[in-house]
Amino acid sequence: MQLSNLLLVERRGDIAVVTINRPDRRNALGFGDDGDVVEAHLRELNADRTLRCVILTGAGTAFSAGGDLKQLSRWAHDASIRPPDFLKLYEAGIHKVVRGFWSLEMPVIAAINGSAIGLGNDLACLADMRLAAASAKFGATFLKIGLVPGDGGAWILPRIIGWERASELYFTGKIIDAPTALDWRLVGRVVADESLMDEAMAVAEMVCRQPPEVLRATKKLMRASILQGFEDIMSLSARYQVMAHLTDDHREALDAIHERRPPAFSGS
């Protein structure tokens, strides 16, 4: 499946490896038709019910260095662009990119192979699990270029590393290395650069052993828990559990346990 060169999608069994493919601009995102391209790619992934996990990484030496500074400079010096124009640019560009990755229904593993700065850092935070190469760097440097985190990062980042650490990244503009990111729980694991994709694939293969429909339902429950109260989640959990009880995969899981064999899940 290939809609454009911006995102390269490689299918490996039940896993899709999605590579941000703009290495000459350190995988900057959010301009031109990026929003539409990302949205189209990720809509196709969601529609593929045989897909169980996504690995997100970057081409070249960066995961994603965020926005394109040359484009931002052109905007800053273009007196013809008015506030409503900026709103449309963000809604059609960066916001579509972020919403696209947020909307992915299957588990997402970020394999952070280099710098994850600004929007790149926030995209990594939208993943469900994050593995960092030892050489990876992280930052939320919006203020250093005179901007706020306009990609939704003020909502995303504190939920991953807490208010204190998010404030430190935003208000100082500092860049942190992979061991610090691990200490701050920005990533779950740091591995050797050359082992990054092998480690990410190993985690993805473990994910793929789960029943695919309840895998997606569990992610939906976890995402809903961020936005809804306890009673709402209890009600939603009950409805999802009723559906799960009626699946062939539930019966298969129990049969496999009793018969002491690996389960063969069909997604039904």
Rank of each mutant, 00 (worst) to 15 (best):
E213H: 03
V54R: 00
E252Y: 14
L126G: 03
Q210N: 11
A76R: 11
A154T: 12
G60K: 02
N46R: 09
V190S: 07
P179K: 08
A136R: 05
A253C: 10
D48F: 07
L186W: 00
G188H: 15
G93C: 06
R260T: 01
R74N: 10
H41E: 09
L143M: 10
M243R: 12
H41A: 08
M1T: 09
S235T: 02
V207Y: 15
E168Q: 12
D198V: 14
H245A: 15
S115W: 00
G60S: 05
L3G: 03
A124K: 10
E213R: 13
S80T: 14
F142C: 00
D78G: 00
T247F: 00
A200D: 12
V17W: 07
I176C: 00
Y240I: 15
L182D: 01
A244T: 07
L126H: 12
K96G: 01
R159T: 08
L215R: 14
A62F: 03
A133Y: 07
V207P: 10
E168R: 13
F230K: 14
G188E: 15
D34E: 05
K137Y: 06
V37C: 05
A59M: 03
R11Q: 09
L186C: 05
L29D: 03
I160W: 00
R130S: 08
T50C: 04
A28Y: 01
G35C: 07
A224M: 12
